[in-house]
Amino acid sequence: MLRAVDTVRDVATGTLIFLIVGAIGVAVLVLALLGGELLHFGQPDFDGPVSTETVAGFAGAFGFGGAIVNELLGARTPGMVALAVAGGVLAAVPTAWVASRLGRAARDMPTDPTPTRAHLVGALGLVVTPVPADGYGEVRVRVAGTPVKFNARADRPIPAGAQIFVVEALSDTSVHVETY
Protein backbone atom coordinates (compact mmCIF):
# COMPACT_ATOMS: atom_id res chain seq x y z
CA MET A 1 0.00 0.00 0.00
CA LEU A 2 2.88 2.35 0.75
CA ARG A 3 4.17 1.84 -2.80
CA ALA A 4 0.90 3.15 -4.36
CA VAL A 5 1.03 6.30 -2.23
CA ASP A 6 4.64 6.95 -3.31
CA THR A 7 3.64 6.53 -6.97
CA VAL A 8 0.76 9.00 -6.62
CA ARG A 9 3.11 11.46 -4.91
CA ASP A 10 5.69 11.04 -7.74
CA VAL A 11 3.07 11.61 -10.44
CA ALA A 12 1.69 14.62 -8.60
CA THR A 13 5.21 16.05 -8.13
CA GLY A 14 6.07 15.63 -11.83
CA THR A 15 2.78 17.15 -12.89
CA LEU A 16 3.23 20.00 -10.44
CA ILE A 17 6.67 20.79 -11.87
CA PHE A 18 5.27 20.82 -15.43
CA LEU A 19 2.38 23.04 -14.32
CA ILE A 20 4.78 25.48 -12.67
CA VAL A 21 6.82 25.69 -15.89
CA GLY A 22 3.58 26.32 -17.84
CA ALA A 23 2.48 29.02 -15.40
CA ILE A 24 5.87 30.73 -15.67
CA GLY A 25 5.48 30.70 -19.46
CA VAL A 26 2.05 32.31 -19.22
CA ALA A 27 3.37 34.92 -16.75
CA VAL A 28 6.25 35.80 -19.12
CA LEU A 29 3.77 36.07 -22.00
CA VAL A 30 1.52 38.41 -20.00
CA LEU A 31 4.55 40.52 -19.08
CA ALA A 32 5.69 40.62 -22.71
CA LEU A 33 2.27 41.59 -24.04
CA LEU A 34 1.21 44.07 -21.36
CA GLY A 35 4.48 45.48 -20.14
CA GLY A 36 6.94 44.80 -22.94
CA GLU A 37 7.21 48.44 -23.97
CA LEU A 38 6.85 49.82 -20.46
CA LEU A 39 9.33 47.65 -18.62
CA HIS A 40 12.53 46.99 -20.54
CA PHE A 41 14.56 44.29 -18.91
CA GLY A 42 18.19 44.39 -19.91
CA GLN A 43 19.14 46.45 -22.94
CA PRO A 44 15.96 47.97 -24.45
CA ASP A 45 17.32 48.23 -28.00
CA PHE A 46 18.60 44.65 -28.18
CA ASP A 47 16.49 42.13 -30.04
CA GLY A 48 17.90 38.71 -29.37
CA PRO A 49 17.69 35.78 -31.76
CA VAL A 50 14.40 34.65 -30.14
CA SER A 51 11.53 36.91 -29.08
CA THR A 52 10.05 36.94 -25.60
CA GLU A 53 6.71 35.79 -27.02
CA THR A 54 8.40 32.74 -28.55
CA VAL A 55 10.09 31.78 -25.28
CA ALA A 56 6.85 32.30 -23.35
CA GLY A 57 4.83 30.26 -25.85
CA PHE A 58 7.38 27.45 -25.73
CA ALA A 59 7.56 27.39 -21.92
CA GLY A 60 3.78 27.54 -21.49
CA ALA A 61 3.01 24.80 -24.01
CA PHE A 62 5.92 22.66 -22.77
CA GLY A 63 4.73 22.89 -19.16
CA PHE A 64 1.05 22.26 -19.80
CA GLY A 65 1.67 19.66 -22.53
CA GLY A 66 4.14 17.84 -20.28
CA ALA A 67 1.66 17.90 -17.39
CA ILE A 68 -1.06 16.38 -19.59
CA VAL A 69 1.21 13.61 -20.88
CA ASN A 70 2.59 13.00 -17.39
CA GLU A 71 -0.93 12.50 -16.00
CA LEU A 72 -2.01 10.31 -18.93
CA LEU A 73 1.03 8.05 -18.57
CA GLY A 74 1.12 8.10 -14.78
CA ALA A 75 4.88 8.64 -15.08
CA ARG A 76 6.41 6.15 -12.64
CA THR A 77 9.82 5.67 -14.22
CA PRO A 78 12.46 7.95 -15.68
CA GLY A 79 11.53 6.63 -19.13
CA MET A 80 7.91 7.70 -18.66
CA VAL A 81 9.02 11.11 -17.43
CA ALA A 82 11.19 11.37 -20.56
CA LEU A 83 8.08 10.61 -22.64
CA ALA A 84 6.23 13.35 -20.76
CA VAL A 85 9.09 15.74 -21.60
CA ALA A 86 8.90 14.63 -25.25
CA GLY A 87 5.14 15.27 -25.23
CA GLY A 88 5.77 18.72 -23.80
CA VAL A 89 8.32 19.48 -26.53
CA LEU A 90 5.91 18.15 -29.15
CA ALA A 91 3.31 20.66 -27.97
CA ALA A 92 5.83 23.48 -27.44
CA VAL A 93 7.56 23.61 -30.83
CA PRO A 94 4.49 24.46 -32.96
CA THR A 95 3.19 26.81 -30.25
CA ALA A 96 6.52 28.68 -30.18
CA TRP A 97 6.51 28.90 -33.98
CA VAL A 98 2.97 30.35 -34.01
CA ALA A 99 3.83 32.79 -31.22
CA SER A 100 6.90 33.90 -33.16
CA ARG A 101 4.91 34.46 -36.36
CA LEU A 102 2.11 36.33 -34.55
CA GLY A 103 4.61 38.50 -32.66
CA ARG A 104 6.47 39.35 -35.87
CA ALA A 105 3.21 40.11 -37.69
CA ALA A 106 2.12 42.47 -34.90
CA ARG A 107 5.49 44.26 -34.81
CA ASP A 108 5.75 44.61 -38.60
CA MET A 109 2.12 45.60 -39.20
CA PRO A 110 1.92 48.59 -41.56
CA THR A 111 0.12 51.59 -40.12
CA ASP A 112 -0.95 54.92 -41.50
CA PRO A 113 1.37 57.84 -40.81
CA THR A 114 0.46 60.26 -38.04
CA PRO A 115 -1.46 63.20 -39.54
CA THR A 116 0.43 66.49 -39.60
CA ARG A 117 -0.47 70.07 -40.50
CA ALA A 118 0.38 69.31 -44.13
CA HIS A 119 -2.46 66.74 -44.23
CA LEU A 120 -5.01 69.48 -43.48
CA VAL A 121 -4.54 71.30 -46.78
CA GLY A 122 -7.40 70.37 -49.10
CA ALA A 123 -9.52 68.81 -46.35
CA LEU A 124 -13.25 69.46 -46.56
CA GLY A 125 -15.33 70.65 -43.64
CA LEU A 126 -18.22 72.67 -42.31
CA VAL A 127 -18.36 76.09 -40.62
CA VAL A 128 -19.53 75.72 -37.01
CA THR A 129 -19.16 79.34 -35.87
CA PRO A 130 -19.35 82.08 -38.59
CA VAL A 131 -15.96 83.18 -39.86
CA PRO A 132 -15.69 87.02 -39.99
CA ALA A 133 -13.42 88.76 -42.47
CA ASP A 134 -11.20 90.21 -39.75
CA GLY A 135 -11.19 87.48 -37.09
CA TYR A 136 -11.57 83.82 -36.33
CA GLY A 137 -14.53 81.47 -36.51
CA GLU A 138 -14.69 77.70 -36.07
CA VAL A 139 -14.77 74.92 -38.62
CA ARG A 140 -15.10 71.15 -38.27
CA VAL A 141 -12.81 69.19 -40.58
CA ARG A 142 -12.26 65.44 -40.85
CA VAL A 143 -8.65 64.51 -40.16
CA ALA A 144 -7.82 60.83 -40.65
CA GLY A 145 -11.54 60.07 -40.44
CA THR A 146 -12.04 61.93 -37.16
CA PRO A 147 -13.96 65.23 -36.95
CA VAL A 148 -11.73 67.94 -35.46
CA LYS A 149 -12.58 71.58 -34.74
CA PHE A 150 -10.15 74.31 -35.78
CA ASN A 151 -10.09 78.08 -35.48
CA ALA A 152 -10.53 79.44 -38.97
CA ARG A 153 -9.71 82.61 -40.88
CA ALA A 154 -10.99 83.54 -44.33
CA ASP A 155 -10.53 86.34 -46.88
CA ARG A 156 -14.28 87.11 -46.77
CA PRO A 157 -17.01 86.29 -44.23
CA ILE A 158 -18.41 82.75 -44.28
CA PRO A 159 -21.74 81.94 -42.56
CA ALA A 160 -22.34 78.98 -40.24
CA GLY A 161 -23.26 75.78 -42.06
CA ALA A 162 -21.27 76.61 -45.20
CA GLN A 163 -19.06 73.92 -46.68
CA ILE A 164 -15.37 74.82 -46.78
CA PHE A 165 -11.99 73.45 -47.73
CA VAL A 166 -8.70 74.19 -46.03
CA VAL A 167 -6.32 76.36 -48.06
CA GLU A 168 -3.51 76.57 -45.49
CA ALA A 169 -2.72 75.31 -41.99
CA LEU A 170 -1.75 78.46 -40.07
CA SER A 171 -0.84 76.55 -36.89
CA ASP A 172 -1.68 73.27 -35.19
CA THR A 173 -5.05 74.72 -34.12
CA SER A 174 -5.96 77.22 -36.87
CA VAL A 175 -6.52 77.08 -40.60
CA HIS A 176 -7.22 79.42 -43.50
CA VAL A 177 -10.36 78.34 -45.40
CA GLU A 178 -12.41 79.13 -48.51
CA THR A 179 -15.98 78.19 -49.39
CA TYR A 180 -16.50 75.00 -51.33
Rank of each mutant, 00 (worst) to 15 (best):
M1C: 03
M1I: 06
R3N: 13
R3A: 15
A4D: 14
V5Y: 14
D6V: 13
D6G: 10
D6Q: 14
D6P: 06
T7C: 05
V8M: 13
R9A: 15
D10I: 12
T15F: 11
T15N: 13
L19R: 01
L19Y: 08
G22L: 03
G22W: 07
A23Y: 07
G25E: 08
V26H: 05
A27D: 07
V28Q: 02
A32F: 08
L34W: 06
G36N: 05
L38P: 09
L38N: 12
L38R: 14
L39I: 14
P44S: 10
D45A: 15
D45E: 07
D45Q: 02
D47N: 04
G48N: 01
P49N: 04
V50N: 00
V50F: 10
V50H: 00
S51T: 15
S51H: 03
S51Q: 07
T52D: 08
E53Q: 10
V55G: 08
V55S: 08
F58S: 03
G60C: 13
F62H: 10
G63F: 09
F64A: 07
G66Y: 00
A67V: 09
I68Q: 06
I68W: 11
E71R: 12
E71T: 13
L72N: 00
G74D: 05
P78L: 14
A82L: 06
A84G: 06
A84T: 02
V85M: 02
V85W: 01
G88T: 04
G88C: 03
V89P: 00
V89D: 00
A91L: 09
A91I: 10
A92F: 00
V93K: 09
A96V: 06
A96L: 00
V98A: 14
A99R: 00
A99D: 05
G103T: 05
R104H: 04
R104K: 07
R107H: 02
P110N: 07
P110L: 03
P110Q: 02
T111G: 13
D112G: 11
D112E: 13
P113C: 01
P113I: 03
P113F: 12
T114R: 03
R117V: 08
H119D: 15
L120Y: 04
L120V: 08
G122W: 00
G122P: 00
A123Y: 00
L126V: 11
L126I: 04
V127D: 01
V127Y: 03
V128M: 12
P130I: 10
P130N: 07
V131K: 01
P132T: 03
P132A: 12
A133E: 12
A133K: 04
R140E: 15
V143H: 01
A144C: 04
N151C: 10
R153M: 05
A154D: 02
A160W: 12
G161Q: 03
Q163I: 06
Q163N: 11
Q163M: 07
F165Q: 08
V167C: 08
S171G: 03
D172Q: 02
D172H: 01
T173W: 11
S174A: 05
V175T: 00
V175K: 01
H176D: 14
H176W: 13
V177R: 09
